[in-house]
C-alpha cells in the first residue's frame, strides 16, 4: 500500500527534510520523490509506502495536512495512491 504526499508552498530550506522526517516518525518509507521549484513556488510529490505505518492512515493523512498548514506554512495533501491509479489508468 502506498500513498502520495503532495507538498505545495513557498520555497524554503529544509522542506524535504521536514516532511521525510515526519514520514519516518510514522514509519512510512519514502519510495520516490520528485520536486520542482518554479520561481518561488515549491512543489514536491512524494510516494511513500504505508504498509508498515504505526498508526491509522486516515489519522496520518489528517495530521500531516494539519502540521503542514499550522507549523510549516505549506499545503500538504496526503492521498492513497489508489485514487490516482483508478482515475488515470484503464
Amino acid at each position: 500500500m502506498r500513498a502520495v504526499v503532495t507538498v505545495i508552498g513557498k520555497d524554503a530550506v529544509g522542506i524535504l527534510a521536514k516532511v521525510s522526517t515526519e514520514c519516518a516518525n510514522y514509519n512510512a518509507n519514502v519510495v520516490e520523490v520528485t520536486q520542482s521549484v518554479i520561481e518561488d513556488l515549491f512543489a514536491m510529490i512524494m510516494l511513500v509506502d504505508i504498509s508498515g505505518i504505526n498508526t491509522d492512515f486516515a489519522k496520518m493523512a489528517e495530521e500531516l495536512s494539519e502540521k503542514g498548514e499550522k507549523e510549516w506554512g505549506l499545503k500538504v495533501i496526503v492521498m492513497h495512491e489508489d485514487i490516482f491509479n483508478c482515475m488515470h489508468h484503464i
Binding site: 502520495v4 503532495t6 520516490e32 520528485t34 510529490i45 495533501i77 492521498m79 495512491e81 490516482f84 488515470h88
Partner: peptide
C-alpha cells in the same frame, strides 16, 4: 511512479 501531471490534475479537480 504515477505521472506528476496526473497527480496535480486530480488535486486541482478536488481543490479548485
Amino acid at each position: 511512479m504515477i505521472n506528476q501531471y496526473d497527480i496535480l490534475e486530480t488535486i486541482r479537480m478536488i481543490q479548485d
